[in-house]
Design a protein around this nucleic acid. Structure first.
Ligand code: ATP
Length: 741
DNA sequence: GAACAACCTCTTTTT
DNA sequence: GAGGTTGTTC
């Protein structure tokens, strides 16, 4: 009855057609999990299930986009487009806008990004006169975020003895106060951070039975991709909705769990069977994506992880070529040469740029690749990173726009009250904030009221304040105009561009251009038929959902972090920067658990490839304004040497025309095998002469006392209680520390 | 009190 | 390489 079924194997078919009741698919990369989800959606619609009753969730916007286009490919049914599909955050934000009044927000609430959140927390810490080194704003925020994602609010925190103990050890007695103040500040500003989008949804459903029932009756069929990366908040909301109809289909792979830093927990997936009744479980073992060599290499890598569900992953695809390991003298050379190889292969094999992807651990690595590709005139697109909308000048303009929609947004007001500079400095601002705090109202309310007369400032400053209020009031009138008119008026009234042009440094010219681009995109936005209000615009920007300019060509080399590449596939994959300290990250190296997660990340990277994987590393890298030396990542040596070949590059020769001579095989695989095995064993038997209660000083965690020493399997682990950072498990092989007693 | 320049600090990964 | 913080000048 359905053409595409011919393209499914029998297990996949079963998973697709088993539409009633809870279904769980745990399977390896490239085994068709996403395909099963998309086919299932098409199948449900074909069965006559109204599209509005289907909820399909993903973690990233890119995954959502990918799934939409896959559905587009397999069904002509126009209905398919009215399913609820998107990231958790975007779907929940829609629900929250609609129901905001029930949880004491208005539908115009602002969404704060991480920078906004950290700034607010920094301000709170300063207001409380706390030590900014002990209360590092970023780590306090990370901790708040972690708790929110685990549904621990500031009240529940009181019962979390373990967490309280950690904070005491870290000398952060006031953590709870900050947490409370932060939540208050957001609420008073009618603003939610990313995590609030989850926990407020949870709260909404918990407190309003009828609302929950309403959404249960809408979302009769729920499908979620990459379930291994759900956190507690997300898992709980799905349970709230899903328990009614039990038609929940989850798909995931524990070996691809790479988001534990934002609270993801694979136990959510593993416990699925306990919450729902009669869970049907499907296993997909055949990889349809990659060559045998790639599958084998990936298998040999992930075998090094102790923590995993055993799975067999095999493929019937052709053998393919070995993974190439390339070594360069520095990062510039790496970027340049990788670009060169891609550029030449595009010509040589007559392939499209879109068949190539360059993947990396950190966003900052994109720079050198970008330069190389641009130099050669190759189309490329960088995903993520410091996006356009995170640039200072754009955030400044956006802050005005957010204020127009939600004038209680303190954070945005503080951002722009003196931008462009208009003589309202920190002291004045502090006074206004104090009064607002006393009155229990937003800063704007204070400014826009007779209270402005009570602020203890000089005449001059007061008139600056009233000028500002006057200007803002003019802007606020524009709320319902079209977004293009708003931005034009905003630029005219604030003189932002005018002031930047007065001092035409390169940087400022760039800023003017960027603002120009923002104006352009708002112009395009304003020409939409619907969903074209300022609130819509801000919402899309905040959730990073901005539709790409249709104008840009589709044919480009993709540059992205491995995190973003999850769920995607490319014929040719280049993984750059495989250096210990970068990948795995310096911050992970010390804790075995984190190393395992990084290893999974590498696993994800390799398994994105259809035909070819090329891995590179550089001996010198420009980081932190200085050149740092780095060694080849030990992850490379964990791949069975049978599946890789290491090559070293001779500068100044031409790769394309005379491959054999340019790329000299540095080691033949058998030699390599022995060499590496020896290396790993010597590396492992790294046992230092240490004693319990010895004091050490660590390069990152500072002073601490050794509490436990574990010499089993030659890989010495020590448990250290740090004065400032609490207890950590370190591998002495990697940890940088000195013994001080 | 505000503005600007000079220093310091920190960069994992995402919504 | 961009934020915040500190120091100096107006
Ligand atoms: N039965 C099949 N026959 C042929 N090709 C298939 C089959 N099932 C899936 N594929 C193809 O295999 C590739 C991988 O599928 P898909 O992306 O759904 O896998 P996945 O399990 O979601 O992978 P990952 O977990 O790595 O994201 C896709 O190109 C898909 O079209």
């Amino acid at each position: 009855m359905h053409d595409n079924f011919s393209k499914l194997n029998s297990e996949q078919k079963n998973a697709v057609t088993c539409t009633d009741g809870p279904v769980m698919i745990i399977a390896g990369p490239g085994s068709g999990k996403t395909r099963v989800i998309t086919e299932r959606i098409a199948y449900l619609i074909q069965l006559g299930i109204p599209a509005q009753n289907i909820l399909a969730l993903t973690f990233t916007n890119k995954a959502a986009k990918e799934m939409k286009s896959r559905i587009h490919r397999i069904t002509e049914n126009a209905n398919a487009f009215s399913i609820w599909m998107g990231t958790f955050h975007s779907i929940f934000s829609k629900i929250l806008r609609k129901e905001a009044h029930r949880i004491k927000y208005t539908q115009y609430f602002t969404i704060y990004d991480n920078d906004d959140s950290v700034k607010i927390i920094r301000r709170i810490i300063k207001d409380l006169n706390l030590d900014k080194d002990i209360y590092n704003a970023k780590s306090v925020f990370a901790r708040i975020s972690f708790m929110k994602n685990n549904l621990i609010d500031s009240q529940k925190y009181n019962n979390e003895n373990e967490l309280i103990k950690q904070d005491l050890i870290n000398k952060r007695e006031e953590f709870k106060t900050i947490y409370e103040k932060y939540c208050n500040e957001c609420h008073k500003s009618n603003a939610m951070d990313f995590d609030d989008l989850l926990i407020k949804t949870h709260e909404l459903f918990k407190q309003n039975k009828n609302i929950l029932e309403h959404y249960q009756s809408i979302f009769k069929y729920i499908l979620i991709d990459e379930y291994q990366d759900t956190n507690k908040a997300q898992d709980t909301i799905i349970k709230q909705i899903g328990r009614q109809h039990q038609n929940v289909c989850i798909v995931g792979d524990d070996s691809q769990s790479i988001y534990s830093f934002r609270g993801a927990n694979i136990n959510n997936m593993l416990n699925f069977k306990m919450f729902y009744t009669n869970v049907k479980e499907f296993k997909l073992e055949q990889n349809y994506r990659s060559t045998k060599n790639i599958v084998n290499a990936a298998n040999s890598l992930i075998a090094k992880n102790k923590n995993k569900i055993e799975k067999t992953i095999f493929t019937e695809n052709k053998n393919g070529t070995k993974i190439k390991i390339l070594k360069y003298i520095n990062d510039r050379e790496e970027g340049d040469q990788i670009s060169d190889i891609i550029s030449k292969n595009i010509v040589k094999n007559n392939t499209k740029p879109s068949k190539y992807a360059v993947l990396y651990r950190t966003n900052s690595q994109s720079k050198v690749i970008e330069d190389g590709l641009r130099k050669r005139g190759i189309n490329y697109k960088i995903f993520g990173g410091l996006s356009f909308y995170q640039r200072k000048e754009i955030k400044d303009v956006m802050a005005y726009l957010k204020l127009i929609v939600n004038n209680n947004d303190n954070e945005s007001l503080i951002r722009i009250i003196n931008y462009p500079t208009r003589g309202i400095g920190p002291t004045t601002l502090d006074r206004i904030r104090k009064i607002s705090e006393q009155e229990g109202q937003s800063i704007w309310k204070t400014l826009n009221s007779p209270l402005i007369e009570d602020i203890n400032v000089q005449k001059k400053t007061r008139s600056r304040l009233t000028d500002f209020v006057h200007m803002m009031n003019q802007l606020l009138q524009l709320t319902d105009n079209n977004v293009f008119e708003i931005i034009e008026e905003l630029i005219a009234l604030t003189e932002i561009i005018h002031k930047l042009k007065e001092d035409p440094t390169d940087e400022n010219i760039n800023r003017v251009n960027n603002i120009g681009e923002l104006v352009n995109s708002m112009k395009m936005f304003s020409e939409r038929k619907n969903n074209n209000t300022l609130l819509d615009f801000i919402n899309e920007v905040s959730l990073d959902e901005t539709k790409d300019n249709e104008k840009t060509s589709e044919d480009y080399v993709s540059l992205m972090t491995i995190h973003q590449s999850k769920g995607l596939e490319f014929p040719h994959v280049y993984i750059v920067g495989l250096e210990t300290g970068l990948f795995p990250s310096q911050k992970s190296i010390q804790e075995p658990k984190l190393v395992e997660e990084e290893r999974r990340l590498f696993y994800v990277a390799i398994t994105r490839a259809i035909n070819e994987v090329v891995i590179s590393h550089a001996t010198n890298r420009f980081r932190f304004g200085t050149i740092t030396q780095s060694e080849k990542s030990f992850f490379i040596d964990e791949i069975n040497p049978l599946f890789i070949e290491e090559l070293t590059y001779n500068r100044g020769t031409d790769f394309l025309h005379n491959k054999k001579q340019e790329w000299k095989k540095r080691k033949t695989p058998p030699q390599l095998k022995n060499r590496n095995l020896r290396k790993i064993t010597t590396g492992m038997s790294h046992i230092m002469n240490l004693n319990i209660n010895q004091k050490i000083i660590h390069n990152i965690f500072g002073e601490g006392t050794i509490k436990k020493i574990d010499n089993s399997n030659g890989n010495q682990k020590i448990t250290v209680l740090f004065v400032k950072n609490g207890e950590k498990v370190l591998l002495t092989k990697f940890a940088k520390f000195k013994i001080i007693s």
